[in-house]
């Protein structure tokens, strides 16, 4: 960190700093103009001076006024366009990104890797790899902020948000909670450790709780009674899971939905909201019975049973390299992109 610029440790950081500097230069020029004119006029036209005080030429009143109105409007439109285009560029995470699940609660950060490894307040990521974070909160609103990466995303209870980054520097960077969340808001800090890809893979493999999410999900599938209806052998008329993930599903009320994470989560928490066509709404709500981690595991299990194409996806996505993972398939099926907004009214 220099005196005036934070470290640039992600590919986005440089881009954002460029806009920032451009805006800064424009602002300085404009301030120089405004301050310069005020001071200049103040001196030239102080009462004691003998400057010319005749009436203003007419073109000054209209043409000038209209002129600078349009000039500023154009400048503003240009600035908007530039900033917006950078924003749109980074809106959608790359398809091959590595996913980490983040759960925020007063006043700590919990990270869960695709293979089940959990960490508190420390996020380790491989360098030069797009990382997508799925963010959930267990209580109030928090905000995931890593200044060195120039990313920030609120973590809202009842809503699943997402953000992503690609780290370009090795090292340890500050993670801060940026949305006020109560007493220890200012202590809700952590760190992001960017490692070499090889080191990261080793670290991940060496973790004791290496059992993967999907396997835990498979256990829950039985222990929580899902199998009673959804297992291949069940007599209950309920959808089967193989090949479900990412499919476009017709609903009883005529709409269709894509079986993405959000949809599956909803199916467990509010089964009566989007009832699949051809089934009766008999599935009970698991709201309050399953915690976020369990839902995550069950979803991973369902995903592991295969996607649209029918080919079972690898249960754990490798840290880098473009393996066709489930999320990618989901996006392919849903042109609107990965909208993970379970409570968002849009869909």
């Amino acid at each position: 960190m220099s005196m005036f610029m934070p470290i640039e440790a992600s590919d986005r950081a440089a881009q954002i700093d460029t806009i920032f500097l451009a805006l800064l230069i424009i602002s300085l020029l404009i301030s120089a103009l405004v301050f310069g004119l005020i001071i200049g006029f103040g001196i030239r036209y102080r009462r004691a001076s003998s400057a010319d005080r005749g009436p203003m030429p007419e073109f000054f009143r209209r043409e000038f006024e209209i002129g600078w109105t349009f000039a500023t409007a154009l400048l503003f439109l240009f600035l908007f366009w530039w900033a917006a285009s950078v924003n749109i560029e980074v809106l959608v995470p790359p398809k091959d990104s590595y996913r980490v699940n983040v759960v925020a609660k007063q006043w700590m950060w919990k990270f869960q890797y695709p293979n089940g490894v959990r960490q508190i307040d420390t996020l380790r990521v491989p360098i030069d790899t797009p990382i997508t974070l799925t963010l959930e909160s267990q209580d109030v609103i928090h905000s995931f902020f890593v200044p060195a990466f120039r990313i920030k995303q609120d973590v809202v209870p009842g809503l699943r948000t997402e953000t992503w980054f690609k780290a370009t520097k090795l090292g340890t960077f500050k993670l801060l909670c940026a949305e006020y969340c109560g007493t220890d808001h200012s202590r809700m800090r952590g760190e992001v450790i960017v490692m070499r890809q090889k080191d990261f893979a080793e670290w991940l493999a060496a973790r004791p709780e290496g059992d993967d999410l999907a396997r835990r999900g498979a256990e829950l599938f039985v222990s929580r009674g899902c199998s009673g209806c959804h297992a291949e052998s069940s007599n209950v008329h309920a959808p089967r899971f193989p090949g479900l993930y990412g499919r476009r599903i017709p609903l009883a009320d005529g709409r269709t939905a894509v079986a993405d994470e959000a949809y599956i989560r909803d199916s467990m928490l509010q089964p009566n909201r989007d009832v699949a066509a051809g089934y009766r709404p008999i599935m009970p709500s698991y709201s309050g019975l399953l915690d976020d981690g369990e839902i995550e595991s069950l979803t991973a299990y369902i995903r592991s049973l295969g996607t649209v194409g029918g080919a079972p996806a690898a249960p754990t996505a490798p840290p880098s390299g473009g393996a066709a993972n489930a999320a990618e398939a989901a996006e392919a099926a849903d042109p609107a992109g990965p909208t993970t907004r379970p409570t968002g009214g849009g869909r």
Binding site: W82, A83, I151, Q153
Partner: peptide, 23 residues
């Protein structure tokens, strides 16, 4: 006001605001 207003334009630019909001 000019200084403050110009800083408002930084905030109105989404990528910059993402970095500086709540700071």
């Amino acid at each position: 006001f000019t200084t403050g207003g110009l800083s408002g334009l930084f905030l109105a630019s989404i990528p910059i605001d993402i970095h500086v909001t709540d700071t």
